[in-house]
Amino acid sequence: MARVEFREERCKGCMLCSTVCPKKIICQSSRFNQQGYKVAEVKAEDMENCTGCTSCALICPDLVIKVYREEKKEK
């Protein structure tokens, strides 16, 4: 299990993140942030498909995305 968190107030809606997501779960919402951009999002029902690959965060020019992964259980 993994998930991403968008710091929406920094997003500029460039959608570069959506082009690199292997699961194609990132889309543009209809919400505008204070800067006036329509922000990127992953819908709650799609989040379970996130692999935590960090591709979206690596290509994002605006440091919007935080990526979390479940820690492997210790034996």
Partner: peptide, 25 residues
């Protein structure tokens, strides 16, 4: 869960003046 990607601390927490999709970021 573990945070595996975040902005490095050295980056000042303020939105940049760059255009959407500008690679300076």
């Amino acid at each position: 869960e573990k945070l595996v990607f975040d902005a490095p601390e050295i980056m000042i927490d303020r939105p940049t003046h760059y255009c959407p999709g500008c690679h300076h970021g």
